[in-house]
Each structure stands twice: as structure tokens, then as C-alpha cells.
């Protein structure tokens, strides 16, 4: 059972961190993601931003799971991680095809649809 050295002992102490600390970190990460989505026009940077938001959301879920406490939040995060891995695999495939067309991955180059 001693898979983890801290298995028997709790890492988190009552007097130390509170849920809001983790939620603030998540909010900051989401703000960085929003900034990236607005400013960046490189398709890969946009995926970076989306991944940052997804990670922050997972942090929110785990913090809630620890606070409540219930294991369902952890299961939720497992599903969420698996799903975003699948999503990124398809998305990167699309971006590589785009690179074959334009030799660039800047989405401002993609203007075919504006008529």
C-alpha cells in the first residue's frame, strides 16, 4: 500500500491552504487563457490557451472534490483529461493538414471563406 510516501499522511493541513487559494490560481490561469485566445493568431498558441483553461478547470474540480469531500470529482477529472487528449489528437491532425496548404499556421492567413 505504500505506493506513495505520503499515503498514510495527509499533505494538506487545515491551517495552511483553503479552497479559495486553489480557485484563485485557476482563475488566474483561465484569465491567461482568455488573453491568449484574444491576442494570439497562431493556431497552436490557441490550442495552448485552450489547454491552459482545461487544466485550470480540472484544478477547480479537484479542489472541490477535496473540499466536499467526494471521490466523484476525481473521476470527473479522469474523464475530462482523457477527453481532452482525444480532442487534441484530432485537432492537431487538422492543423497539420492546414500547414500542408498554407505552409503557415497563422489563422489570419485563412481567408477563403470570407466572401
Amino acid at each position: 500500500m505504500a505506493l506513495w510516501p505520503w499515503h498514510a499522511e495527509r499533505i494538506l493541513r487545515k491551517e495552511m491552504n483553503q479552497p479559495t487559494d486553489f480557485l484563485y490560481i485557476a482563475v488566474i490561469l483561465i484569465s491567461i487563457g482568455i488573453y491568449g485566445l484574444v491576442v494570439k493568431r497562431n493556431a497552436l498558441r490557441l490550442i495552448f490557451s485552450i489547454e491552459l483553461i482545461a487544466n485550470a478547470v480540472n484544478l477547480v474540480l479537484i479542489a472541490f472534490s477535496r473540499m466536499l469531500p467526494s471521490p466523484q470529482g476525481q473521476v470527473f477529472v479522469l474523464f475530462s483529461i482523457a477527453i481532452s487528449a482525444a480532442e487534441v489528437a484530432v485537432g492537431l491532425g487538422i492543423i497539420i493538414i492546414a500547414y500542408r496548404f498554407y505552409k503557415d499556421i497563422d489563422i489570419t492567413e485563412y481567408k477563403n471563406l470570407k466572401n
Binding site: 505520503w6 499533505i11 494538506l12 480540472n58 479537484i62 479542489a63 472534490s65 476525481q74 477529472v77
Partner: peptide, 15 residues
């Protein structure tokens, strides 16, 4: 690392 602090080592490994 946050996941480990929050007592979710399995999810941390998965991450």
C-alpha cells in the same frame, strides 16, 4: 503538483 497537495495522487499520476 497541485493535485498531489490536494490528496489526489492517482489523478496526479494520470495527469
Amino acid at each position: 503538483g497541485y493535485f498531489i497537495i490536494l490528496d489526489a495522487p492517482f489523478v496526479a499520476m494520470f495527469q
